[in-house]
Lab assay of single mutants.
Amino acid sequence: KELVSALYDYQEKSPREVTMKKGDILTLLNSTNKDWWKVEVNGRQGFVPAAYVKKL
């Protein structure tokens, strides 16, 4: 599985998104959309802005 690192804090703005803190390591589930990537963090799945994470 592919991992990404959070470059910035992000506070979810809808139920489809997830909150992350800078430095968090997230499991990348889907990166086909260039703007929003689906990740899993702390057992929750949702979307984060692609520009806020980088692949490890």
Rank of each mutant, 00 (worst) to 15 (best):
K1C: 15
E2V: 15
L3C: 13
L3K: 11
V4L: 12
V4W: 14
V4K: 01
S5A: 15
L7K: 08
L7Q: 07
L7T: 07
Y8L: 10
Y8M: 12
D9A: 07
D9Y: 05
D9V: 02
Y10S: 01
Q11D: 14
Q11L: 13
Q11P: 06
Q11W: 13
K13P: 04
S14V: 05
S14F: 07
S14M: 08
P15G: 10
R16C: 15
E17C: 08
E17K: 04
E17L: 06
V18W: 05
V18D: 00
T19W: 05
M20G: 00
M20D: 01
K21T: 09
K21S: 09
K21N: 09
K22C: 07
K22Y: 06
D24Y: 05
D24H: 04
D24C: 07
D24N: 06
D24F: 04
I25F: 06
L26D: 00
L26M: 14
T27C: 12
T27E: 10
T27W: 14
L28V: 08
L28T: 01
N30F: 08
T32W: 10
T32R: 11
T32S: 14
T32I: 09
N33R: 10
K34Y: 09
D35E: 12
D35N: 14
D35P: 02
W36Q: 03
W36K: 02
W37F: 08
W37T: 03
W37L: 05
W37D: 00
K38V: 14
V39Y: 01
V39N: 00
E40P: 00
V41D: 03
N42M: 09
N42Y: 09
N42R: 11
G43Y: 04
G43F: 05
G43D: 06
R44P: 01
R44A: 06
R44G: 03
R44W: 04
R44D: 03
F47S: 03
V48E: 01
V48F: 00
P49A: 02
P49V: 02
P49L: 04
A50M: 05
A50H: 03
A50C: 08
A50D: 01
A51F: 10
Y52R: 05
V53T: 04
K54N: 09
K54D: 08
K54W: 09
K55R: 14
L56G: 07
L56W: 11
L56A: 07
L56M: 11
